[in-house]
């Protein structure tokens, strides 16, 4: 299992990522695109599993994300518990969920296939949400960041009442 983008995402972000896919700040790598979509998916509670259609682009956290990757995983666990209606103080359920997603027995922490699937699902949900809200693929970085910021923070009834199942 690996990190996967929505199959249309690479193409959709093409214009803001520059020629040869060599990114511009802050979307320098495909992982940045993934992270943008993931955060939006988590913020708006959009979890949309990819099935077999994902676009695999990386099989581990890249250097730039090593310091913050546990926050990404924590956000994913928190959202997953919320989605299943599990309270965070339900000891057994929390432990079960953590065990489902990660394994830190060895020297480092590794994501299990379910962990990848869960992260990928939020990234795909975030991408779909972005695509629905913008009239077409973005061609300007500042414009994209501005929309992203607004979409992250706008009041949304769906988010207010709970995550989409």
């Amino acid at each position: 299992m690996a990190f996967q983008l929505h199959p249309d995402a690479r193409d959709w972000f093409k214009k803001v990522r520059g020629k040869d896919g060599k990114g511009k700040e802050p979307l320098e790598t495909l992982f940045d695109v993934y992270h943008m979509c993931f955060v939006l998916g988590v913020a708006r509670g959009r979890f949309e599993p990819l099935g077999d259609s994902g676009d695999t682009f990386m099989d581990e956290f890249i250097q730039r994300y090593r310091a913050h990757h546990l926050l990404m995983i924590g956000a994913m666990i928190s959202k997953s518990l919320e989605r299943q209606g599990v309270a965070v103080d339900d000891r057994k359920a929390v432990v079960k969920e953590v065990e489902r997603f990660v394994d830190s027995t060895g020297l480092g922490m590794i994501l299990k296939p379910d962990g990848f699937r869960e992260l990928n699902g939020y990234a795909a949900g975030g991408f779909n949400y972005l695509r629905e809200e913008l009239s077409g693929p973005p061609s300007d970085m500042v414009f994209l960041l501005d929309r992203f910021y607004l979409l992250l923070n706008q009041e949304n009834t769906q988010a207010a009442v709970g995550p989409q199942l």
Binding site: E25, P26, H35, M36, V42, A67, H68, G74, A75, L145
Partner: peptide, 23 residues
Amino acid sequence: ISSNFANPVFLYDPLREQLQKLA
């Protein structure tokens, strides 16, 4: 923005509270 972009809490501040609660 780029140098902070990898931090999900920087992008979406409400996550800070959620993560703290979890911790």
